[in-house]
Structure formats: structure tokens, C-alpha cells
């Protein structure tokens, strides 16, 4: 098998506070291959964004990587600092965030921002950089790309701005894109356009995508594989179709059951009682055991089995056996 674009091994992120050391990401392991879209789902606080930020080295202090490795095309990137890290972002990893306004500099035209990124990371002349920028804008579906080069971010609508961000993320031809809730702030009709665009461009260029979202529908339509996170740990990892239609982990089963389904009509929704534990009050054993309908004494004593990088199964003592 070819080398994965991104390989995360037992990643642990810690936040020291004055009461305790919190672990918002605790033992996350996965591989991401060329041209693949990996969905990261989980509820707020599950650690999905924190995982993305750890990969691009954007953890806000005092959060820090406390364990594990992150390899990009076979090279360790979790130890990088300063200049190396800056070159890594943009050149090798592109980013698309939820709010397109925060990822664009409001004082520069989008043309300036695109050409700057291109000349910074690729060895091309100014004229060629401009040409590439225009092509990039055209590719993400911005009408009259040539004229729009001189416009400022605030002159674009929300959907168009997110297209610009995608053009910016892709312009230095990175091998990995991290998209953190890229469509959450957008309307349904625009969301469909942006998702389709992201999907098409990454397929065409073979860019790997780590798609962080809370929307199971987006995962179903976009991702090849999906990782389900709960309280900083991986609950389940597998092909999107398998995980969504035949979930193995009780948490994933509950999550799917509680999503209102078109076909299910007015039936009562399946309910997982309680809510995700706070990081400073994690239960012992499997983090899900107090909410789990199948929990047995083993679950509150031993930590749940961890997931290996490319094995498709649930991190549950009884997941495989009891699967529906």
C-alpha cells in the first residue's frame, strides 16, 4: 500500500489548567491517503477541531501536543516550530475554516492574497503567479475572475468568500486540506455548492481532505471514510457507508438513531440520555460507559480498546460481538 499522506499515531493533546491536565485529544490514530476524504464527526467538545489544529500546528497555548506522532508524507511534523511550521501551512497543508472572513485579510485584495501565497510557496514569476491566481478563482467558480482579483473580501457574499478561501487553500498545491466545518455558516443551497466544489477539486488533484463536521448528512455525501470522536477518543473508524448504515459502537448507533430521518417520519427519536462528559470529569474506563445501554462492569474499569490506524472497527469491548 502506498504511503499515506497524513498519518496520525496516538495523538494526545493536553491543556494544563490549575485543577488538572485536560486531554481534549487522547490517543487518536488514523491514516489519510491521497485523494481520500476522511470525515471527522463528533459533538462539540469531542476533540475534532483540536485534532485538526494539532495537525497544522495551530494549537493555542497552553494546549500542546503531549504524545504521539503526526507524519505528513512520511515526515514528522509535530515537532516543527516557527519558519518550518509556516512553510508547512499553505505549502503542504491548506486550511478552510468555518468563517471565511477570519481566514482572509480584510485589508488586502483577494488577488494580492492569492499571488502572495503562490509566490511564497512556489517558485514562479509574478506574472505567472497572477495567472495562476486567476485560474484558481475561475476553477472555484468565481464569475469574472479577472476583475474580481482586485476586490476586497467584504465585497463578496458568504458563499463566494468561502470559494475564495478554497482557492487560497489549494493555490500552492498542498497534498492535504483540513476543512473545519467549512459549510456550517452557510445556507443549505450554498452548502451544497461548496461541498460539491471541494469534492470535485480534491478528486481531480488527488488532494487528501480531512473534513471536520458535525453534520452526518455531509459525511454521507462527501466522505470516503469516517472517524467518530467522543470525549477526545476515537469511538469508531470505517468506511462512511458502513459506519452510517451499520454502526458498531453504541455511541455511533445512538448518534445515528437520534438524527431525524426523512423516512422515519414522526416516530420518537432515539435518545442517548445525558450529555458528553466535561474533560475535567471524565468517567473511568470507557468515556461513554455512563450513557451506554450495553455497559457492563468491564466498561467502567478498563479503558476501551484503542483503534489501530487502518482497522475498521469500533473502540468498544462489545462492539463487534453485539453489533446489530
Amino acid at each position: 500500500m502506498e504511503m499515506p499522506v497524513l498519518s496520525v499515531r496516538d495523538l494526545v493533546v493536553e491543556i494544563p489548567t490549575r485543577h488538572a491536565v485536560l486531554r481534549p485529544v487522547n490517543g487518536v490514530t488514523f491514516d489519510l491517503h491521497r485523494g481520500e476524504i476522511l470525515g471527522m464527526v463528533g459533538e462539540s467538545g469531542a476533540g475534532k477541531s483540536m485534532t485538526g489544529n494539532a495537525v497544522i500546528g495551530l494549537l493555542d497555548r497552553p494546549a500542546r501536543i503531549a504524545g504521539g506522532e503526526i507524519l505528513l508524507n512520511g515526515e514528522r511534523i509535530d515537532q516543527l516550530h516557527g519558519e518550518e511550521l509556516r512553510r508547512l501551512r499553505g505549502k503542504h497543508i491548506g486550511m478552510v475554516f468555518q468563517d471565511p472572513l477570519t481566514s482572509l485579510n480584510p485589508l488586502l485584495t483577494i488577488g494580492e492574497q492569492l499571488t502572495e501565497t503562490i509566490t511564497e510557496h512556489l517558485n514562479v514569476s509574478a506574472a505567472e503567479a497572477r495567472q495562476r491566481a486567476v485560474d484558481g478563482l475561475r476553477e472555484v467558480g468565481i464569475p469574472a475572475a479577472e476583475q474580481r482579483m482586485d476586490a476586497y473580501p467584504h465585497q463578496f457574499s458568504g458563499g463566494m468568500r468561502q470559494r475564495v478561501v478554497i482557492a487560497l487553500a489549494l493555490c500552492a498545491e498542498p497534498s492535504l486540506i483540513i476543512a473545519d466545518e467549512p459549510t456550517t455558516a452557510l445556507d443549505v443551497s450554498v452548502q451544497a455548492q461548496i461541498i460539491a466544489l471541494l469534492k470535485r477539486l480534491c478528486r481531480e488533484r488527488g488532494t487528501a481532505v480531512m473534513l471536520i463536521t458535525h453534520d452526518m448528512g455531509v459525511i454521507a455525501e462527501t466522505a470516503d471514510r469516517v472517524a467518530v470522536l467522543y470525549a477526545g477518543r476515537m469511538a469508531e473508524l470505517g468506511l462512511a457507508r458502513d459506519v452510517l448504515t451499520q454502526p458498531n459502537h453504541p455511541y455511533t448507533i445512538g448518534l445515528m438513531g437520534s438524527t431525524p430521518l426523512a423516512s422515519a417520519g414522526r416516530a420518537r427519536l432515539y435518545q442517548i440520555d445525558g450529555s458528553m462528559p466535561r474533560l475535567d470529569a471524565l468517567p473511568s474506563g470507557c468515556a461513554f460507559n455512563p450513557r451506554c445501554s450495553r455497559a457492563q462492569s468491564k466498561c467502567s474499569q478498563d479503558p476501551s480498546p484503542s483503534l489501530a490506524a487502518h482497522q475498521d472497527r469500533a473502540a468498544c469491548w462489545f462492539g463487534g460481538e453485539n453489533a446489530q
Binding site: S189, I195, D215, G217, V218, E221, L244, L261, A262
Partner: peptide, 12 residues
């Protein structure tokens, strides 16, 4: 346009 939970490989 709304994403479907069973929309695997769907091209809306």
C-alpha cells in the same frame, strides 16, 4: 440541496 443521511455517492 439538503445533504441526505443515505446520500452516499449522490451528486445533487
Amino acid at each position: 440541496a439538503a445533504p441526505k443521511l443515505d446520500g452516499f455517492d449522490r451528486t445533487p
